[in-house]
Amino acid sequence: MRRLRHPVATAIVAVPLACALALGGLVAAWLAGWPVPGASGATWFEVTKIASADYTPEPGAPVFLLVIGNDGRPGDTITRGDAIHLIGVNPATKQATILDFPRDTALQVPGHGLDKVTHAHAYGGPRLMAETISNAVGAPIPYAISTDFDGFIGMVDGMGGLVVNVPERMKDKDAGVDLEPGPARLNGTMALGYARNRKQFSSGDLRRTENQGYLIVQGLAQLRVENTGPIGTLRLLANLGRHAQLDGVGLKDLYALGRLGLDVDPANVRNVVVPVGSGSGSQLRLSGDYQSLFADFADDAVLQTH
């Protein structure tokens, strides 16, 4: 297995939330497995329907979506999932929760035993990673969205940059970030650096994964502000559709997911890093009251007691 190079940034910042926060999947026949042709070029992200083909979200029921940033480079066929965020949306209450998983979190990977969750992606792509996390959390995950470095950059640039409030000086040569505190509009490369930055933080990857969750929330906020309504969402999807690889999903799914996400006020989104023991470079064990946290999350995608 290739050595980890960079944790992928939040891959999905906007779209996912947009879509992901919806987002969604896309039409099966449509693109299933096809490489994105393209004039408009590059593939920004891949949407995979994990659930059965006839699955549609039950009205009012919570929907869970796994957002993955992988470390893929052009030509790579095996990639790790380094940015891992499970988003739960409750359409009835219009609330959402993002569970951020450090990449080294040790989980039972079906067929591979206890292993770092990041490796699940290398073993079996988004599907195995979704199965791994679904088993751990106890929530069904019908959709997964995955992006890589270039896709993330393209996505952020495609939405005209991402507005954030940099909480403190961020400077890390390896991550490629050099930002002053305060409000800023990040282009794709800058946003990737923001999402990868960890060495300057004492809590390392934990802070990084939290920052990635923050980017997702900011992406949602921006998309909500810029969205001009349902028809605007159609236009957004047409653009995304030119840059998406779809596996088992269609534009109708994507629209439904996007609308689901855009209905949620970012103020009603909780961003929570799952509790793990300290350490780095090796497996991080889930710790604390993680079981209670997962149960609280899985029942309705909203944290009532955490």
Binding site: V27, L234, A238, G241, R242, G250, L251
Partner: peptide
Amino acid sequence: LTALADRAGAIDLVGAG
């Protein structure tokens, strides 16, 4: 009317002002 077409040309969503 604003319709959304996928890459294969299928139209399953239409917006109406």
